Simulated scan of single mutants.
Amino acid sequence: MKENKYDNEQFFAAYSQFPRSVEGQSAAGEWHELKKMLPDFKGKRVLDIGCGFGWHCLYAAERGAAKVVGTDISEKMLKVAKEKTKYPNVEYRQLAMEDLDFPTDSFDVVLSSLAFHYTPDFSEVCGRISKCLRSGGDFVFSVEHPVFTALGTQEWVYDQAGVASHWPVDHYFTEGRREAVFLGETVVKYHKTLTTYLNTLLQTGFAITEIVEPRPAPELLETVLGMKDELRRPMMLLVAAKKQEGR
């Protein structure tokens, strides 16, 4: 259940050439919206779950975070993150999100970018986050949108001329395992409804403060191939929440 496709040599090589892997947040279509949802990092203890190449860890450190811990299941991803990181208060740990076990009140901010659709048990992960996040602390994350993950194939339907005619949504209410082809490899993800994402937060002690279905940054529409099609359906879901006092 803890798939680690990112340590596959062929997949990792392809992923390393992906625009957001090379250029970081500037090539991420959702970043212009996500960064507005992030709290003030100055003096904060920050946890980044599924940190990948460490872009968000560096962003927090650059903005005065007192301590940043990035976790990821991929040894290869963490190797690159460590090579890029010069801040002594940033550390990385190879750890699956389902195995998070930090002491109570360890962090003031928890972040996660495009990781939670890889876990079959979002509730378990949220419970572990709630434990290590202080009361009143911030929890901000992005996931692939349920409209994007519902069918599983994650591919447009094309007409006879080879033009993308529409995005298929089917089996929306049937949650669970999906298989998609990404960068030439079969990748396992876990579809969850919007209701599940939001209610799980409420049930594990969080108050939702903002929800965004981001459109791509305008400057990327002309420079990134296929980005204009991202205006036709939501690809991502961004959520900001706070741990309720006394939870």
Rank of each mutant, 00 (worst) to 15 (best):
T85M: 09
K76I: 00
Y92G: 01
R128Q: 06
V109R: 12
M97E: 12
F116R: 10
E75C: 01
S106L: 10
Y118N: 06
T85R: 09
P88D: 09
T85S: 12
D138M: 08
K82N: 01
K86V: 03
V125I: 09
T71K: 03
T119D: 11
N89F: 12
L100T: 00
V110T: 13
G127R: 15
K84I: 00
L100W: 07
G70Y: 01
M77T: 00
M97A: 10
E91V: 05
D72Y: 07
S112M: 05
P103E: 13
I129Y: 02
V109L: 11
H117Y: 09
K76A: 07
D138F: 03
G70E: 04
M77L: 11
S74L: 04
V80D: 03
K86Y: 02
D72F: 08
V80H: 06
G136N: 11
C126W: 10
E83A: 14
S123C: 08
L95G: 04
T71C: 12
Q94V: 08
V125H: 12
Y118C: 01
S123L: 09
K82R: 15
V147Y: 14
E124C: 10
K84F: 08
F107D: 07
H117T: 02
L78V: 00
F139P: 11
T85I: 04
P146T: 07
D101I: 05
D72V: 04
F122H: 02
T119K: 13
F116K: 10
L111G: 06
D99S: 11
S112V: 00
T85D: 08
L100I: 14
V147M: 15
T104Q: 15
S74T: 02
T119V: 14
L111E: 04
L114G: 00
V80T: 10
K76D: 04
V80Y: 02
K84E: 04
I129E: 14
R134D: 01
R128C: 02
G127Q: 15
F116W: 11
R128V: 02
S130D: 06
F116V: 05
C132N: 11
R134L: 08
I73L: 15
E144R: 10
S130H: 03
A115P: 08
K86A: 04
G127K: 15
E83P: 05
G136H: 13
V110C: 14
C132T: 13
P103T: 03
S113F: 11
F141K: 10
D72T: 03
V143S: 15
I73W: 11
L133K: 09
L114V: 12
C132Q: 07
L95E: 10
A96V: 00
F141D: 03
P120G: 07
M77A: 06
T119H: 13
V90C: 04
I129V: 15
C132L: 07
S106N: 08
C132A: 06
V109H: 13
L100G: 02
K82G: 03
E98A: 09
F139A: 05
I129H: 07
S106Q: 12
P146E: 06
S106R: 14
E144D: 12
